[in-house]
Design a protein around this nucleic acid. Sequence first.
DNA 1: GACCATCAAAAGTCATACGTAATGAGCGTG
DNA 2: CACGCTCATTACGTATGACTTTTGATGGTC
Lengths: 243, 243
Amino acid sequence: MASQAESPTRSSRQGEGLHARLLASLGPAITGGEHPPGTVLRTDELAEKHEVSRTVVREAVRVLESMHLVESRRRVGVTVLPAEEWNVYDPQVITWRLAGADRPRQLRSLTVLRSAVEPVAARLAAGLATPEQCAEVTGQALGMVATSRGGQLEKYLVHDVAFHRAILRASGNEMFARLGDVVAAVLTGRTEHEVMFSDPRQEAVTLHVQVAEAIRERDAERAEAAMRTITLDAMAELDVLVP
Amino acid sequence: MASQAESPTRSSRQGEGLHARLLASLGPAITGGEHPPGTVLRTDELAEKHEVSRTVVREAVRVLESMHLVESRRRVGVTVLPAEEWNVYDPQVITWRLAGADRPRQLRSLTVLRSAVEPVAARLAAGLATPEQCAEVTGQALGMVATSRGGQLEKYLVHDVAFHRAILRASGNEMFARLGDVVAAVLTGRTEHEVMFSDPRQEAVTLHVQVAEAIRERDAERAEAAMRTITLDAMAELDVLVP
DNA sequence: GACCATCAAAAGTCATACGTAATGAGCGTG
DNA sequence: CACGCTCATTACGTATGACTTTTGATGGTC
């Protein structure tokens, strides 16, 4: 018990708890293929390697277990599960995979998911959006128009994310609403990592405005169609950028 | 350390660990509204109430925290988060909510999600399904036909679930594939809890066969359309059964 | 009334001891 | 030789007590 008493929390300050730090180390290592499925980790070993107590390791392992990244069995150890078992909807897992070697596959999966969900969300939003939500969507679309020229990619991105978030929220479906972070991650990733020298294509901007209009006019059909075009464009774009 | 030594694991045998048991108690209590958002739980209190050690409580809380059901802060306690924060895609959370008071809302959310995802999955499957996957889909559709009369609802359900699972898997998208459990839960729930005296509607059966045919013939358009009809029917049915 | 020092409550961490179950080597028997 | 049983080993599971760290709350001073 004296070890941490003599050296008050070794090294620099940590924002979060030790378990979170360990998790942030183990999670990406697993999703990134550093510990391939079938690998067996032992708690004592992890504790020693990361210089934390077994208690901390166990808490982190519990979380990984709840994500179905690993399975803890007596007398065996902590076994890394095959990727098919992973909770690929867990925001943390998504983040880890987007940050690692799996990034292209993950981006593609998410984009396909978008192409399924967002058109339906737009359709629902057209029927359910409150006046405030309509105003929000319209406002963000106009913001996209305003920032679509002159290399203001960062500002454009902000409006783009807010636009899609607003529609997902206005759809009235909690599960759709929760995909706001996913869409944000995809859009941000596109702007950040991929080559985006030029301004956004004007057709894309126009489509966003059309979606906003359609929702405002309660035209479910048009809202869905326009949004479907947007997401299909995103998939086509992905085919060009990613192998 | 003597407490469980003198009484060898009090009461009956437990299949899983204590933390899992605690989780199975706390999770539904939170998602079911028994501990409304804002409620503050204290670790020691939970430990005493459930007759487990703080270690066990902490592990369970860590998992709940990773699901964004609660937030643990020093000097404050374990605070229940508002429902908007919850990881509604976590299979455990879905299960808990389906088993609790939130069941109708959850069923509706999941059905809407299905209506967005499954048509797109069918379209993709039409382009990607291997011969084996085509055979599987067709086989399950035929199984549905065979069990669609004579009150064999349980057998029909098995084929129905397997059919949708096969298509989601054949879509080639890992995130779609992971929704197999969700679809299974919805379909099972419909057969179990709702009134289903009669045999399934023959039109529904026919639509499933059509989807299988379309996938086999690589007709993406028709596969998507038929599946869309299936999921829209499911939504319509839900509107009738659930308030 | 605003600001700051002090206090205390509760989570966070650690180390240790002991319980428990699963595994696989070894051994005996048919 | 094969099969199955026993049993020691091993690594996770649980409990506990001591200590640390953070932070809301309290109360006092200017």
